[in-house]
Amino acid sequence: MSEWTGELELDTERIQDKTITENLYFQGAFKIMRPVYSHHSGHPSYYILNPGGGYLDGDTYRMKITAGTNAGLTLTTQSATKVYKTPNTQAYQEAEFYLGEGSYLEYLPDPLIAYKDARYLQKNIVHMSKGSTFLYSDILTPGWSPEREDFSYDCLRLINEFYMEGKLISYDHIKLNPGEQPITGMGFMEGYTHLGSFIVISDKVEPGLTDRIYDLIQQEDEDVTIGISQLAVPGFTIRILANYTQVIERIITKVHHLISQEWFQTKPGSLRKY
């Protein structure tokens, strides 16, 4: 018996022009659907399901995803991840990603919704090899509460560790703790309710790209606050404060399109499922 509420392992490899599933295992409250190959491409999209419908008190989830040499894949979820109240023990998820040389892995899950009295810790640990590319996004949204107050959740912590050939190259730790912090105020959420992040690490990122992305996201006319900065290695992080999930999704999609257009002269398929 596994001690995890949900467990998922996926290994992929590239055979000629196609990335295929080499090994797949899941148990408990994690499931993965058959990959979708859009428009004759060899690039699969995998959708993760959480049959339990949400993360509960003390739940633990674990996934391990491997992209073989030159493999390319997209990993997403079928719907938002919901974290419900955790009176005793926080919910926890850890994900490990292994990227072989020249591989391309996108992990673009739906938003995370944290409900009243929820506590959640998430760790992504990304092991990259030479010439690999990793794209990651997350969107944190406050769930509905009977009192209609925002930020009724207790604490969200998201940690991202990135290693290149075994060396730590970036470490990202966002902590939102409405239980203890004046969360709406200066230095915290600055009056906004939603927080989005988009992280791209790749040798293909050059300084001009972040300038072009900056110009693109400046055109956003909704009420948002956006920052973009280059990492210590070729790559960048974008952070977005906004009041609507859709606004953050739109900005991330725009940037994603720009990158796909510049690097592959393609438009990424729509991942949304409705």
Partner: peptide, 20 residues
Amino acid sequence: DIDFGAVSPGIELSQMQHER
């Protein structure tokens, strides 16, 4: 140890935005 590097979003965003 796991608390290391935690930062609130506004503080970090202001540091990223400073470039511009």
